[in-house]
């Protein structure tokens, strides 16, 4: 389970602009942000940005030791990141 996002949490998302340059869209994101992206193996997932490399690719991570690893997720292009999490509400 995600420490910042326990099961059955509600999240408020900010949709990244679908238009505009890749660079402009990337400026909306920074390391530590939680984002929603579409992954070819895992489908739509919520992950945290661990790093942005010099090619502008995003490396995502879960925050629990049992999460899928950053290496397994692989580099993610900005076009596959649709939203940024701006608020979460957790049960309890």
């Amino acid at each position: 389970m995600h420490p910042r996002l326990p099961h059955n949490s509600f999240i408020l998302l900010y949709s990244l602009p679908s238009r505009g340059s890749t660079k402009f869209r990337s400026t909306k994101l920074k390391v530590g942000d939680m984002v929603k992206c579409y992954h070819r193996d895992f489908g739509s997932i919520i992950k945290t940005i661990a790093a942005i490399d010099d090619q502008g690719l995003f490396w995502l991570k879960g925050e629990h030791e049992s999460s899928v690893s950053t290496q397994e997720i692989g580099p993610v292009h900005i076009d596959l990141i649709s939203d940024k999490v701006i608020f979460t509400w957790s049960p309890g």
Binding site: M1, H2, L5, F10, I11, K36, F42, G43, S44, I45, I46, K47, G62, H64, S66, S67, V68, E72, W89, S90, P91
Partner: peptide
């Protein structure tokens, strides 16, 4: 309180679901 309000809203009008993919995937 806000969570309960959101839960009530979710019961009436289902929000879309997304996975955090954290359920101890052993991958085997």
């Amino acid at each position: 309180m806000l969570y309960r309000l959101l839960s009530a809203l979710d019961n009436n009008k289902k929000f879309s679901r997304v996975s955090a993919h954290c359920d101890i995937p052993c991958k085997i």
